[in-house]
Nucleic acid binder design. Structure first.
Lengths: 154, 154, 154
DNA sequence: TACGTTCTAGAATATTCGTGC
DNA sequence: AGCACGAATATTCTAGAACGT
C-alpha cells in the first residue's frame, strides 16, 4: 500500500474526473500515468493505461477509481473537457523507463499541478453551457458532494 | 443480544424513518448497514440489505422495525428525503469484510453521526412544503410521539 | 442460436437504447425480458435481468448488446426517458414461468409493440431540449447511423 | 396533516461519434 | 493524420408528484 502524498480538499467531488485523475497521477503504484519532472504536466503511457486502468473498468467494482470506458479516446475527451491540452515533452524531460516502448502523451492544465492540489477545485467542465456561464461571470455548478445549488442547508 | 450503544432522545418518533435507521445502523448484529470508520457516514451493502432487511418487510409484523417496501430504491428515496447524500468512500475506509462482493453505498448527513444521537431530532423530511417553511424560518412539524401540533403551550 | 423474428429498419441506430431493447425482448434465448401475451408491453424479471443482462455489462465486450451500467434503476431511467410507463399486468397475462419468484415489471410504450418494428423509429429521447423541440413542431435529432442533421437532402 | 411508497423527471457528469481545422 | 470540440446518448444521483394510510 502506498500512501498518497497530497490529498484533495473535501469540496472536490471524489467521483468526478478531476479527482480520479488526481488520485491516479499521485498513486506511485500506478506506472501508466505520472507527473513530468517539474510537476507541471502529466505523462501517460497509452498502452499501459489501456491495459492497467481502462481494461480494469470492467472488473473493478470500486466506482471511485474505475472508468466506465475502455477507449483511450474517451479518456482524452475528458481531459479536453476539463481544459487539458496536449503538448510536446520538454527536451530534458525523459519518459519514465517503465514503459514498453509504447506511445506517450503529455497533457497540461494551468490548474493541475503537483504542488497545487487546491487548484483542482478550479477545474470546470467546459461544456457549451458552462462556458457561457463562465463568460457571463456566473458560478458554474459542479455538483459538489452534499449540496445542490438551491439547497441552502438548514 | 447486543446492547445498542447510544439511544435516541424520547422526542424522536420511534416509528419514523430516522429512528428506524438509527437503530439499524447501531445494531451490531446487522451486517447490512453500519457506520464508516469515522462514524460520519453509513455504509450499506445493497444485496445484504435487500435480503436481510427489506425482504423481511413482508413477514415481520413489528412495524417499529420493518419497512413496508421491498425496493431498495424506495429506501434510497427516504434517505434523500431526509437529506442524506451519496458519496464515495474515503480511501482509508475499507469496506466491511462481511459482504458478498456486492454493491456498497455510502450516505452521509450532517445530522446523522455516530456520536451525535441528539442531532437525529434535527432531521426533517424535505418535502416541498417543509423546504419552504425552513426557508421562511418557520418551525417544521415532525410529529413527536404523544404530542400534536396544537398542544404547544401558549 | 435463435433467429430473431422481426428486425428493425436500417434507419434506427443499433447502438441506441431502443434498438438494444428491441433485440433483447425479441431474443427468445433471453428469459429476463419478454413480450406480454398481447405483444403490447414488455415484462422484465428484475432479478434475472440484473444477473443475466446487467452483470454481463462488465464481461461482454460487444458494445452493441451490453449496457455500461449494472444498476437496474439506470435501466428504468432509460425506459422512462424513451417514454415507457409502468403499469399493472392484465389479469389474464400470467407472468412467464421461467422466473425464480422475483420481481416483475411491466412497461408499455405506444411505439413499442411486437408487431410494429417500424414504430421503434418514432421513439424519441425525452430530454428537456427534445421535449421543447417536439412541442414546437421541430424535428428531433436522433443521430441515425451515418447521417447528420445537416445532411437532409435539399 | 404528516409520513411512506412508487413512479417519473430534472440536472449534472460520462461516453460516444463525428466534423473542422 | 492528429487534435480540439460540438452534440447526441448513457449513467448517476436527487427531487417532484401522486396516492394511500
Amino acid at each position: 500500500m502506498v500512501v498518497v502524498a497530497s490529498s484533495l480538499p473535501d469540496s472536490i467531488h471524489p467521483h468526478n474526473f478531476p479527482a480520479k485523475l488526481w488520485r491516479l497521477v499521485n498513486n506511485l503504484e500506478n506506472k501508466a500515468i505520472c507527473w513530468d519532472s517539474y510537476g507541471d504536466a502529466i505523462i501517460i503511457d497509452q498502452h499501459l493505461f489501456e491495459r492497467q486502468i481502462l481494461s480494469q473498468s470492467t472488473t473493478n467494482s470500486d466506482s471511485t477509481e474505475a472508468f466506465k470506458t475502455t477507449n483511450f479516446t474517451s479518456f482524452v475527451r475528458q481531459l479536453n473537457l476539463y481544459g487539458f491540452r496536449k503538448h510536446e515533452p520538454a527536451i530534458k524531460d525523459n519518459h519514465p523507463p517503465t514503459g514498453d516502448g509504447g506511445m506517450y502523451h503529455h497533457f497540461h492544465n494551468p490548474n493541475f499541478k503537483r504542488n497545487h492540489p487546491e487548484r483542482v477545485a478550479s477545474l470546470k467542465r467546459l461544456t457549451v453551457n458552462n462556458k457561457a456561464k463562465i463568460q457571463a461571470g456566473l458560478n458554474v455548478n459542479c455538483r459538489p458532494p452534499g449540496l445542490r445549488k438551491e439547497m441552502t442547508p438548514f
